[in-house]
Every structure is written in structure tokens, then in C-alpha cells.
Design a binder for these strands. Structure first.
Lengths: 220, 220
DNA sequence: AATAAAATTTAGACAAAACTAAAATTAAAA
DNA sequence: TTTTAATTTTAGTTTTGTCTAAATTTTATT
């Protein structure tokens, strides 16, 4: 199955949001895509038509298996190109996103297979994100609870073991999500709470109980 | 100035035709672009609007200086990507055109500059066609048909004027490609066929018709 | 020179992907 | 439980690039 550039971008956007929240809603996707809710609704109809989406009017939506595979294909292309731009063309890693955003829409299975081999079949892109293989399998990484991380080490949030609404609400308040970069600054021995820096910006204090449920991996 | 994919394709099409005939006409461009004359007229208006074209209704048209520069930019991107696909990703040289056709529309000056450096600033693509530099300057090279080369002189294949599948199949069989080194050993007066040495290895005999279509230059 | 043929352009329509404004539905507050 | 607010969808429009069919202009032929 082949998709238009716009379809691929929406698929990627939905995939991104549903990884954090499960069900996705129209306004959130409109914000993610920097477009209007009405445009999102238009595209949702097309994606449902192509059987990539679980979607009922007014109810929220998410990608089905075919949709997820399509998303992983785009993610794979994006991350391989980012790797190429940084490792081969010597771009700074924070400059490559917009160019990879264009390259990812070139559809040639052979091109991507050969690029993958040329790059040495990398497992992670320059941002530390895993590169799915051609079957959509994502390499697993060594992850540790935030409560076990040494001070000053930069890590990335990879998952949250307690996904209750209460926990997600709390993390939302701290502006912590999958992919957020954290650094542990200090541990308060009184109650085991941690002072952490979020996204290289604001520092805050989280309880030991929260820290135990947040899993992170090396930033590489 | 930035152009849409469709505009770039038309610019390239006009450039190609005007190199052979000077003035271009609507039907010829429609055939070149595999589209309808009415669509060509629509695009001509846009390109004239953008001041890339000398065009008067019913009179024929051609690119002005700005248009030629735009065309050379696209040609440069196309040929650099073809070089990349063959030299780095090890594609067969007769398979890369459709992929380069997509890559050429990614517009990032820095990307192309870095790609050029990464590839070692090549002057000719894998088909032997010259790669314009970033100012649109095309490297010139004295080339002669293989049928005019004196005996025992070492030469390098620089281009093939007949690029049909049949010709490429034949050259593949003889192991002749762009960059291959050849020496003419003997001419058979009976039918004009030539005995040549390929890559300082095997000798073989090619017909006069093949020899006339293979262009070579001095071995630098 | 008049007419037929070919080439070219215009007029109007369509599909994709976006938008605005208004209507419909769901969720929250009084 | 109404009423209000927020969210989502529909209806209708716009832009880009394409198309068909008809009209116009140029070229070729009697």
C-alpha cells in the first residue's frame, strides 16, 4: 500500500499521540499537525476508508495494525535518513529533522533497504530513538527505573509502568512524557523523593513512587 | 526562489527540449511531460508569471536566464543523487533515474552542498552526463566517438548516446560502463567492427554501430 | 485566396488538501 | 437537570494541478 505525503504525515502524527494516550482526539491531532480540526476530520475519513483507523464519529480514534505498520514504515525512513544526514553528511543532530521530514516520503523499498545496509543497519538514530526494521520490529533497549539512575546523567523517558489516569495526570503536570529528556539532580533521603531537571529547563521534585514507575534509557 | 515539484518538472522538460531545438512548442512539451497540451498552457502561464519564460501566445517559448539557472539547479540535484545511488548505495546505473526523479525535488541548499562534498565534488554522473556546479556552470570535456579513436590510445568511456534498454543490455554484456577504460586494437574493414581491449583485460569485438554511440575522453 | 488541418488556448470541471463559518454532539457547570 | 462551554463534524470555498471539449489561431493544401 502506498500513501500520499499528507496521509503519511497524519499517520505519523496519530501514531505519536496514541503511544502516549491510547485514544487520540481531533483537537490534539490538529495541534500536533499545526492544522485545523476540520482538516483533521477530512483526513480521518480518508484513513478510515483505507482501513488504517479505528474511528467512530465524536468518539476518538487510533491506528489499527495496518495503520501502525504504515506508521512504523515512515518512522523507519525518517530515522534512517536522520542517521545518514548526521553520520555521513556531518549535519548537526538538531538540524536534520526538517530535511528528514521531506526525505521520509520517498517511497522505494529498495532505496531504504540499500540505505539501511550502507549505514550499517543502525538500531538507533542520532537522537537515541530506535529505528524499526523493515517488518516494523523496534529494537529493545536497556531501560531502568528513574529511581536507579545516577545523578547528572542525561536520560530519555521510554515508558511508564503505571498507566492509570492518576499517574498520567501527574506526569502531564510535570510535563513528563515519552521521549522527554531528564536529569536527576539530587535525592532527598528523608522520603526518597528526587529533584530532576525536565527537558533541560525547569527543575522539580517528584516522589519516590513516581520515580519507580518512570522508565528511562540512555540518551546516546 | 523556490518552486513546486510540478514547476521544477516542467522547467526541466523545457530545458531539455530547448537544448536541441531552441524554441519549444506546446505539443512537444506535452509529449515530453506525458500530459495534455492544455495542462502545458496552464503551467506556461505560471512560469511566465514567475518570470522564468519567454512566451507569447501561439508563438512557442523558451527559458530565460533565470529559468535556465532554475533548470540547472534541478539537473545538478538529480545528477548528484544519481551519483550517490550508484557509487554509495551500489544501484545499477540503469535503475536510478526514477528515484533521483523524486530526490531532486527536495529543496535544501545545505543538503546539496554537503552531499556534493560527501561525494567528492564529482563532475560527471554515472551516465557520463556533466554535473553543473552550484552556480550553474557545466564542466566541459572533449569527447569523441569510439569509432574515431586511433589504435592503442587509452581512453575512458564518458557517455553513451543511445540509452535504450537494448544498448545498455549489450554494454553490460561487454562489461562496458561509464568510466571503463578502453583501447582500440584493430579495425576490420569488412564491416567496420572494432577489436577493443576492456579494462586492460579481455579483448572483444564490437560492431561499428555500437562504437559510434560510445563516447570517450582522454584518460586523465 | 479560400479552406482544411494542425496546433494552441480558453472555459469549465474535478480531485486533493486545505480553509472558514455554522451546525451538531458531547462534556462540564450552574 | 438545564444551560453553557468545548469539541467535533458538516457544508461550502479556495488553490494547485490536472482534465475534456470547444473555440481560436496558425500552418498547410488545394
Amino acid at each position: 500500500m502506498n500513501f500520499t505525503t499528507s496521509e503519511e504525515n497524519y499517520i505519523k502524527g496519530i501514531f505519536h499521540l496514541q503511544q502516549e494516550n491510547g485514544l487520540v482526539n481531533t483537537n490534539a491531532l490538529a495541534a500536533e499537525m499545526q492544522t485545523r480540526p476540520a482538516s483533521v476530520t477530512d483526513m480521518l475519513k480518508k484513513l478510515k476508508e483505507k482501513k488504517l483507523l479505528q474511528y467512530e464519529k465524536y468518539k476518538g480514534f487510533k491506528l489499527n495494525e495496518a495503520g501502525k505498520k504504515a506508521a512504523l514504515d515512515v518512522v523507519r525512513k525518517h530515522r534512517l535518513w536522520e542517521f545518514f544526514l548526521v553520520e555521513k553528511l556531518k549535519f548537526d543532530w538538531d538540524k536534520v529533522h526538517p530535511i528528514a521530514e521531506e526525505l521520509e516520503h520517498i517511497n522505494s523499498v529498495e532505496l531504504i533497504q540499500r540505505l539501511d545496509n550502507f549505514l550499517g543497519n543502525p538500531s538507533f538514530d542520532p537522537h537515541g530513538d530506535p529505528i524499526p526494521d523493515k517488518n516494523g520490529k523496534i529494537p529493545v533497549i536497556k531501560q531502568q527505573s528513574l529511581s536507579e539512575i545516577p545523578f547528572k546523567k542525561n536520560v530519555t523517558v521510554s515508558s511508564v509502568s503505571n498507566q492509570t489516569a492518576q499517574m498520567l495526570d501527574m506526569l502531564k503536570h510535570y510535563k513528563i512524557a515519552i521521549g522527554t529528556q531528564l536529569t536527576v539532580l539530587k535525592k532527598f533521603e528523608f522520603d526518597g523523593s528526587l529533584e530532576i531537571k525536565v527537558s533541560k529547563q525547569n527543575a522539580c521534585i517528584i516522589s519516590e513512587q513516581v520515580a519507580k514507575n518512570v522508565f528511562v534509557h540512555d540518551i546516546q
